[in-house]
Design a protein around this nucleic acid. Sequence first.
DNA 1: ATGTAC
Length: 481
Amino acid sequence: MITKQDCQQINDYIWEIPTGFKEQMNVPVWIFADEELLEEALKDLSVTQAVNVACLPGLAGHVAIMPDVHQGYGMPIGGVMAAKVPDGIISPGAVGYDINCGVRVLASQIDYNSAKPYLSDLATSLYRNCPSGVGEKGSIPLSADELDKMCRQGAKWALEQGYAEAEDLSRTEEFGCLEGADPGSVSKRAKDRGRGQLGTLGAGNHFLEVDVVEEIFDPQAAEIMGLYQGCLVIQIHCGSRGFGHQICTDYVQDFQLAVINYGIQLPDRELVCAPINSKEGQAYLGAMKAAANFAFANRQALAYHARRSFAEVFGSPEKPLRQVYDIAHNMAKIETHKINGEEMTVCVHRKGATRAFGPGFEGLAPEYQKIGQPVLVPGSMGTESWILLGTKANDELSFGSSCHGAGRVMSRSKAKKEIRGDRLRKDLEKEGINVRAGSMPGLAEEAPKAYKDVNRVVETVSHAGIAQKVARLRPVAVVKG
DNA sequence: ATGTAC
């Protein structure tokens, strides 16, 4: 059991567990949290898992955990780990089962007050146009060749197919396409599962949400992003569906052997990994990129469906839904960072954490090179969400990373036992939130009280200096599987 | 997160 006494306070929002805490630790753990969120983080296995991650070979700097952290498979959700390239490792469990799970925000210039009478119709239309739930019903089916092409090209494929605007791609992380995706490293089983799932929402914490821009903190950045106070935006939270899930399953299994072959000592079997430059490591990287591109194309297809719904309900708007950004929060990427004063190439594993690069980064659209990368932080269902900007200072603090959401505090099983979905739906509707959900137990799992306070999480990242506030959003319609 | 069990 790790306690507060084991954490050395660096400042009001950063705590360190030094390498001396456990003999096998190779780097320290940094916890981004205020006192209350630190206590929250210590209640489950989050910090223990972060310490386990810090025992992996070939790491750089420290392991970082975000204020929305909670325990996950091997590595906590809300964790960031940088492995040295070429001497370090890559770990599927440190990316997560939902490869390139992420969030996309599109903004409108439709005023909430005038749209209010139509929000129920909008929610119904979104629920109808965006297939949801476990499985593959109602998707855009692909041939084997077409699936491979889509995996190589990501959102570029979606643009060719007519599901995207050119600006969507310029406002997507990596422009919606990771180079080097290798469909040859993806199992037939994963492809069979993925073929029929493009353009589907899935279940669990995936959702569509219509919000109103409630408060703007950085008018210049909001203007550039296309966010207007009092206007509607839509958030899309989804990933690589059964395709990425199967790829993670396959490589977690394959790597059990790699760990033995390369003589890697593991603190936890769930942290199986392989040297990044080994044939196993490269195969996973190629497959992970294929899943990442699947997810970019998937969110693009969902954006296409969302635009159809807005057009159905509001007519063809003279000012269309414009993409703000699309961001990944389960991914491993090769990047260069300044670590303990030294420029290093590392494989940054972000699991339930986002990239949050500051101004000047060339991999952004020109208008975002000026202000920094947008960071999209959805709150729990029925609570606020945030749009932030990455900073320059976060390079040395968190490998250019920030938080990804509110963070779960109650297990899915406990939430299902304690909360009635139909009651929750009524409560949300009473607050003026239109709810369309395929599963009432599924809705209960996502109840606001199963999550931390997203506003406190955002206060923490902003005071810690890893992201800054641009706008707060308030939900008015939620669509779930 | 997930054809929630190959």
